[in-house]
Structures are given as C-alpha cells and as structure tokens.
Design a protein around this nucleic acid. Structure first.
Lengths: 195, 195
DNA sequence: GCCAGACTCTAGCACTGCTAGACAATCGCT
DNA sequence: AGCGATTGTCTAGCAGTGCTAGAGTCTGGC
C-alpha cells in the first residue's frame, strides 16, 4: 500500500539523508571534524537540528559513521585495480597498492579519520562487519597471495602490512613524521614485503 | 633576592603543577580523555578552574602536552634496554624492542593517545623537537644499526618500522583488528625487518 | 600594623550534543 | 471538499564544555 505521495516522501527523505552526509563530509574535509556541529549541519541542509535526529537517531556519531562507510566503499574501489594488473611484477603491484592507499588518505584526510580514528558505530573485526569494510582488507590479502613467494600466514601478514601503511598515514598526518621523504618510505615499505 | 617564603611558594607551585598533570593522566587512563574536563581537574586538585590556567596558559591542550612529554620520557627508558643486550641475536633484539613498545602502549593507552593521537603543543619533526621525543626514535634506529645486515637507509627504515608498530597499536586500539593473534603479528613484523 | 601585590574565587560567556513539547502542514479517508 | 489523525518541523531549553573578566581575600615585606 505505497501511495505515490508516500513514495515521493521516501525519495525526499533519502535525498535529504545524503545531503546531511554530504554536508558533514564536505565540512569535515574543509574545516575539520571539530567544525561539524549539529547546528552547522542543520544550517547546511536548511532545516533545524532535530531533523538530523530523525535521520540519525544515534546523533552525530551515526553521521560520522555514514561518512566512514562511504569512505570504505571508495577505498575498496581505489585498491581493487592494484591486485590484478597481470603484466606487472610483484614490486610493481605492491607499490601500486601502497600508493593507492596513501593517495586516498591524502586526498580525503577527514574521511580517512572517520574510517580509522574517530569513534564510530561500525562493528569491526566481528561477524557483523559490513562487507564493504572487509573489501579493503581483502584487496591487501589478494595482492599478498599473488606474490611469487607468498607469505605463510597471509591474513596476519595482511594485518601487519595494513598496520604499516596506516602507521605511515597516521604519524604523517599527526605531524610526527617530516613531510619529506615520503617516496623513500614507500620504497622501504615495499621492499620489506617483497624481495 | 629569593626570600624563604618565595622559595616555598615556588616549591608549592611546582608541587601543584605536577598534581594537575598526575590527575589528568590518572583520569584519562581510568575514564578516557573525554572525562578530563577542566572542572574535574579543578576538583581533583581542590582549587577552582582559573588556577589551572595559571599553570597552563594554553589551557587543556597544554595539560595534555605535559602528559605526552611524561610518556615520551617513559617510552624512551622502556625501549633503551632492547638495543644493547650484547648476547642476544638480531631477532631477539628486534622482538624485545617491539614487545617493549607494544607493552608500553597497552599499559598506558591514554598516555599513548596523548603522545601520538591527540592535538598537542609539541613541535614534532622540527629543530625544536625536545630531545626526549627524539630518544624513542633513536632507540629504534640504534637497534636497526646493530643488525648483522643493517638496512642501507637507517633513518627511513626506522620511520617505516616505527609506523608499522604504531599502526598495529592504533588499529588494535580502535577495534579495527581482532583482539587475538597479537603474538603472530609481532612475529610477522619482526621477520619483515630481520631475516 | 599597614599596604601593595600576589593569589583565588564567583559568575558568566559562547559554544557543544541532544530533546521535550508546542505548533503546523500534509495525507488518507468519507 | 473538508474533516481528523498522523507526520513533520521548529522553538526553546537542558546540562555540559573550555575559558576569562573582575571582584574579593589573603599574604609578605617594610
């Protein structure tokens, strides 16, 4: 019994939901997550604050979560191509993977923070972990599996490798690393995994 | 012209300063940094809020910074022993380093956050970087230099290695890693660096 | 014992996330 | 077409945050 009016309303609701997520992400990328307040989000969508809670009953955290999930989707598609370039060598494939990851983190720093730093309502490392979130991990594991001399324990190696790349992003972003020498770091990391 | 009274006052001031830092750290470790509010800190030292700003003009961030600096001191002494166990093998020394680092992070999670996650008033990767902050990095670099087959570019390798260990801490702490398999991760990481 | 200066507190500002309750627009029905 | 109930939205406000101006008290050196 979905009347046309109800269908239109549902569409408008979905529209506005993605407006909220879009505004949150844009605001976070331009001014940082501290600037993403419920009042500014309400201003951005030209509604009052309580409207936000109609879409996201868990409040601000749930909005951050929505941005994070968008990010996981984009990261997965950014990493996917790296694993199946048939003509490439091991080193080239791993380098492509690392570069794609670091590029994503650098291009969308706030989104990356939502994915890996901020408190978020996604169950990680659990049975209910969304498939999209796993996809990035799988891309890393796949690349490792295709090495000429693959590691004995691929999942653990993938975790450690992922940690290493994330560590570079995190320490770099927090200013703990100098801005220069990023290429050397990439090359060093690649050579740790494949040789 | 320091009168006895002035000397006593200076001592009391120093005393109270470390009370503030101690209270901040204890509160952060037991209830998380969100619980470290200026009001609760004022309660802890039994003074009113403005007193905090007498000691730390830059406010809360400066207090977090003080905790971070304490942490860097402790991390440096935790890592120092690993590099100069003379009878040990490469693998043993690197494993000792990684284990000491991970132990520190696990025992003082909030302090670790202050050091590597939270915004802080320490200039990293600069000429004014405090010596204590550099010390941890030097411990890692030293261990690498003593390998039977040391890497060509020790500083860069130290950065990447540090990033890898930090990545494991960060992803584990944020719940992005499963709680188990930590030993396997350590062993995998050690074997990436020395073989 | 007095008085300047150091010290501390109260009270308040502007902001945060979030929500109860009043109000208005809209929809489905007769 | 117009009624009634539902849905949607807003205003106003709560309790909390970091931080600070200004009033008041206490203390040390003369």
């Amino acid at each position: 019994m979905t009347t046309p009016a109800a269908a239109r309303r549902a569409r408008q609701l979905e529209e506005r939901r993605s407006q909220i997520v879009g505004a949150a992400r844009a605001l976070a990328e331009t001014e940082g997550w501290d600037a993403v307040t419920t009042r500014r989000l309400a201003d951005a969508i030209e509604y009052s604050q309580p409207v936000l809670y109609g879409h996201f009953p868990q409040g601000r955290t749930e909005i951050v979560t929505a941005v994070a999930l968008e990010g996981f989707e984009e990261l997965a598609s950014a990493l996917a191509p790296s694993s199946d370039v048939p003509a490439a060598s091991d080193v080239e494939r791993v380098r492509a993977l690392v570069t794609a990851y670091l590029d994503f983190a650098e291009r969308h720093p706030a989104t990356y923070d939502a994915m890996f730093l901020l408190p978020v309502l996604v169950p990680f490392a659990s049975d209910e972990t969304p498939a999209i979130v796993r996809a990035g991990f799988e891309a890393i594991a796949d690349t490792l599996r295709r090495l000429d001399d693959p590691p004995a324990d691929v999942p653990t190696t993938a975790e450690v490798f992922w940690g290493a790349v994330h560590g570079i992003v995190a320490l770099r972003r927090a200013g703990r690393f100098p801005a220069v020498h990023q290429e050397e770091r990439i090359e060093t990391l690649v050579r740790l995994v494949v040789r």
